[in-house]
Nucleic acid binder design. Sequence first.
RNA 1: GCGGGUGUGGCGGAAUUGGCAGACGCGCUAGCCUUAGGAGCUAGUGUCACCGAUGUGCAGGUUCAAGUCCUGUCACCCGCACCA
Length: 801
Amino acid sequence: MKYNYTDIEKKWQQIWDDNKTFAAKNDYTLPKFYGLVEFPYPSGQGLHVGHPRSYTAIDIVARKKRLQGFNVLYPMGWDAFGLPTENFAIKNHIHPAEVTKMNVANFKRQLKSLGFSFDWDREVNTTDPDYYKWTQWIFLQLYKKGLAYKSQMAVNWCTSCKCVLANEEVVNGVCERCGSEVVQKEKSQWMLKITDYAEKLLDGLEDVDFIERVKTQQRNWIGRSYGTLVDFGTTSGDKFQVFTTRADTLFGATYTVLSPEHPLLDKWADEIENYDEVLAYKQEAAKKSDFERTELAKDKTGVMLKGIKAVNPVNNTEIPIFISDYVLISYGTGAIMAVPAHDTRDWDFAKKFDLPIIEVVAGGNVHEEAFTDCNTGVMVNSDFLNGLSVEDAKVKIQEWLKEKCLGERKTNYKLRDWVFSRQRYWGEPIPMVYCEKCGYVPLNESDLPLTLPNVDSYEPTDNGESPLAKIDEWVNTTCPCCGAPAKRETDTMPQWAGSSWYFLRYCDPNNKDALASKEALEYWGPVDWYNGGMEHTTLHLLYSRFWHLFLYDIGVVPNKEPYAKRTSHGMILGENGEKMSKSRGNVVNPDEIIRDYGADTMRVYEMFIGDFEKAAPWSQSSIKGSKRFLDKVFSLADILVDGDSYRAEIESEIHKTIKKVTDDIETLKMNTAIAALMSLLNTISATGSINRAEFKTFITLLNPFAPHMTEELWEVAGFDGMLNAAEWPQYEEAKCVDAAVEIAVQVNGKIRARINVAADIDAAGAISLAKADSAVAAEIEGKTVIKELYVPKRLVNIVVK
RNA sequence: GCGGGUGUGGCGGAAUUGGCAGACGCGCUAGCCUUAGGAGCUAGUGUCACCGAUGUGCAGGUUCAAGUCCUGUCACCCGCACCA
């Protein structure tokens, strides 16, 4: 039989579509499985071969779970707000909604052509007002709880997108999306107080099954550190606080440093004798972006304040105050105490400005380099702390500070609040109104959704205002509170808004009264398995955990954590090992692969390409191996014979393969699952025939990987019903073993022979058989046997002298 | 600098967690079949001075036995980066 993949794939895709074969059931008594992949941004370029790597893997899991009797939810949708669409729309004079429609249609066609078992009845689209109504609703809840606030602050401004970026969207000082320069701009922005959830976001990681690198990356990003706030007096009478994790070294503090933006500097304008110098330094620092400031990490600069000194609270010593841009206003208190003996940055600074270095932890040579080891040192030169370990000193100094009201424990985070405003058209309008009298007022929930006005021009402005600001009839409204004339907020939400809760909507996508019903959320939540890219770890994944934790706190969702399990796939690189990109000319088009090899081959190839977690280069010649494999499988139909049980000579291999494939799918080791199926196929082919029982098992095991052709073979063989409704094969542990095995015989650890023995032979039996082998006998001839080992089913090792 | 990870044939990658290194696939070689197709089939394919030795980035160590464990070291990738 010829394997006509094009016809077969079209045929089954049509049947699945017509029958809604993969629609999740609303029967909440069944055991459920909710598998999720990141919904794509429907770009104009169409599907990338990277998308199917993730989608196929979870599709395989979903299909297997269905065969194992689970009610499976495997949904798909569109994260369709975003700049590329808007830019394309501007350039081509098509409305972004139209562009989105076209792109979605193309993506959908491509996804369907790959045979994914998505439940298309539950498709969501973040740009649909029925959807973003609830995105706006969640924003209002955040606002009501004080977690959304407006703040005038320096923000990251992409010079090309003409739009604000979140800290998470700035990579190496440039825009994550377009690579253009990011500058600091003072603007009034809506912010989300994700920092209030820092603790919960960290703690929640303990309860979920995320791959370790995801957890680590989120932990580092949140960046918790335990320390102490210490009050320093000054000769001017003012006090300021520093944050330190090493309060134990307080006696070694020989100067302090304020951030150039520290508010006390203004206050001290008259008292600082060298205020001109200070001002000049401040201005210099203000010109640099955060990135530039941190870029020039090596060479530390600063200015010592003249006329004011700080007072160390532990010993009332007067020490200098510096300003330096290596102290960040946005972390801690914007002020530090410097202990050059035990901090490398302080040490560098002290050397440059010739400041005293006082050793307070013995164990290093502080004149050569800072001694930062907390584990081995003993306190010295520290009055009542002398002789204590660092650990004990930390406790004691904290007690002492607390008693004297000079300091307290404090936990700090690197995480910053989330800049939530974007000055663009193609996003969810922020449902807020500004009234001269009432200030910012939220819309009434009954007025949601607040839809985007349908306009012709949505070009970004250069003055930092949203394109919506130009649309007077939309902007001008009345205050929901007092009824007076008022203006709408014209910024829109970032793309991350809609994707922060989309997985909830899939549970109950048409609900008019809530983002999803309680029952649906109870049943389907949490997502059992979520696979997605590492690049979203500190963006989408963190944001959506934040929203979900919040929704849990206000009683909207029944679980704290949205995702029980998170895995991540490696990138598919171009054939030359570089990242696929148009400019590199190494992009592979999925449509062409499907045309030339078929969707099943593409699926099998992408799963066989290598370790799922690692990046793998595309190989046009390797894909042929997958095609050959499927060709051979298809021709099994030509050698199909009767038989309702596995033949004895291949029975154990079949059971082993069932076990291997079953287990490997659960751990995403798709490459070895396919390898096992290839091996089994080779074994079966060598016998010249395959019986119906074997055939049924084989194509069922292969079904999640190559769903079209196995469905066809099922029909050709005349099995009952359709394969997608069949049962996953069972294996018996007892039948996974062979009666006889070949073992290696080593003499002094070197292999001298291979012998066949019964699988259940005892050590003595195996060893005597081994010695009977002529090569082994020759090797031990005339030598003293010191030790004899038998590792069941593996080897015998005879140690001689 | 800190954190995470990876080093195995010409290539992608396996190795039941201390037990026959290189499964499976690509590529390559030879032969067959076809009167050139980038098709199919069969056999071979880590390296070498081809008996036998040797081999998992490098150097040591533990062990009857090390890709796997320990110590040191090198290289590459990813993330964070003056976070006090």
